[in-house]
Nucleic acid binder design. Structure first.
Length: 388
RNA sequence: GGAGGGGUAGCGAAGAGGCUAAACGCGGUUGACUGUAAAUCAAUUCCUUCGGGUUCGGCAGUUCGAAUCUGCCCCCCUCCA
């Protein structure tokens, strides 16, 4: 094993402090556990990464994230570029120092905003022109500009600029977009100057097997530090999402990290881990928490429901997070109904801790070759056909 | 005692003869949220066995038709004595 690791380090030409150490693979599935070494520490995989778009995981402090076992978080290039601007972040000494977060960080490139801000942008070969959602300013993002911004922000892992393709889209559209994303990936790679950041390529290709394959193969040829699967969990049926993962993952190198973007429901997380995914991120736990929905070992609950008014039990009796150790559903409901900030904090904390706990359990199960059992038991108890 | 203003659904508040079971806001209830334009958004909120039934302080009228017009009564507020 050690010799293999050395080989991986030697072969990595891009980021000198970055490599995946796979420590065990589940006997029955493709699930695997490992240690991802980054310039800001090592984190265990598979790992769920909370999203901190604006250099903050909404309502949570870095200490709280650390305590719940979040070993890596995201930030967003588009949003930080608009506010406060990457130069400010660079002046602060990089995003870690800026936000006082000591563990690994990853920046998304703005590729998702090409999708989510579709009404405010125009895609051309050279890049994407956004109309700022804040003040209407014209913002131009090319693959080279994006890498430049990400280098100033200074996360450990940076993402190539891509287009997150809407679903459904025609074969023709997906093909053209995917080919462009591949060209953009190359341009970003060529523009990269720092050697203390890992750069990931993003596999697009929509629901089409040949396009996913083509994209994965082309990106692998470029030898990125890791690969992600994009364009998923944007409203497509569940089986389509799993297919998109299958179509891409088999062409990704075994020894490089695989990152499924934007996935945060329990069944997707466990389903992805089963297929050999190492990292995933999602706003779901924090967003739905702020809106009163909580994930528990026994299913989703909506804390604003009247039935919790006099429920003096913990949110999730099987959860050991700060919220569940110290507060009752009745109190959490009260805080939510009264629109108290502390409520949103406690709920965000729980949901995030819950997903981290589930992935931690997954890692332990993989080490003991009982991942499938673990997954089925967790989902059975969760018992929600929608997978939330 | 005199002058004026007002009583509309849980609350606030529009409406001044038919298009009104009654705008809008709050409150209530339920739901959605997946690389965060999201502390946001949507539905619902008189009763109902879904046929219909009962509403705009009360009662009595005018009218084909009244929350809206008339009379009387009951409450509330402001100002003057």
């Amino acid at each position: 094993m050690e010799n293999e690791n050395l080989e991986i380090i030697k072969n990595n030409k891009r980021c000198k402090d970055f490599y995946l150490e796979i420590t065990h693979e589940d006997k029955e599935t493709h699930a695997r556990v490992g240690l991802l070494h980054t310039p800001h520490g090592v984190f265990e995989t598979p790992m769920f990464m909370p999203v901190g778009t604006l250099a903050t995981v909404k309502t949570l402090s870095p200490e709280e994230l650390y305590d719940m076992g979040a070993q890596v978080i995201l930030a967003n290039t588009y949003h930080l570029h608009l506010r406060p601007g990457e130069d400010i972040v660079a002046k602060a000494g990089g995003v870690h120092k800026f936000m006082n977060y000591k563990n690994a960080m990853l920046t998304d490139s703005g590729g998702f905003q090409v999708f989510s801000l579709a009404k405010k942008r125009d895609i051309k070969e050279e890049g994407v022109t956004f109309k700022s959602h804040l003040n209407g300013d014209k913002i131009f993002f090319s693959p080279e500009i994006v890498i430049g911004i990400e280098e100033k922000i200074g996360a450990d892992i940076i993402m190539s600029f891509d287009e997150c393709i809407p679903y459904p889209s025609s074969y023709e559209y997906v093909k053209n977009s995917t080919l462009r994303t591949i060209r953009w990936a190359k341009r970003g790679l060529d523009a990269k100057t720092r050697t203390d950041q890992a750069l990931f390529g993003i596999v697009q290709g929509g629901e089409f097997e040949d396009l996913r394959e083509m994209c994965a193969k082309e990106l692998v040829k470029m030898d990125f530090d890791g690969y992600s699967i994009g364009g998923t969990s944007i409203g497509e049926p569940k089986d389509v999402c799993y297919k998109m993962i299958d179509y891409a993952i088999k062409y990704l190198p075994y020894d490089k990290p695989r990152y499924l973007m934007g996935v945060g429901s329990l069944d997707y997380i466990l389903g992805a881990i089963e297929k050999g995914v190492d990292m995933m991120d999602c706003v779901l736990p924090t967003r739905i928490a702020r809106h009163g929905t909580l994930m528990t070992h026994n299913g989703r609950i909506n804390i604003k429901n009247t039935k919790y008014k006099e429920d003096f039990t913990p949110l999730d009796p099987e959860c050991n997070c700060y919220t569940c150790r110290n507060y009752t559903r009745a109190y959490l409901r009260h805080l939510y109904v009264a629109d108290e900030t502390f409520g949103k904090r406690l709920l965000s904390l729980h949901n995030t801790a819950f997903l981290l706990e589930i992935t931690k359990g997954a890692r332990e199960a993989i080490k003991e070759n009982r991942f499938k059992e673990y997954k089925e038991e967790v989902l059975r108890k969760y018992g929600d056909a929608r997978g939330f």
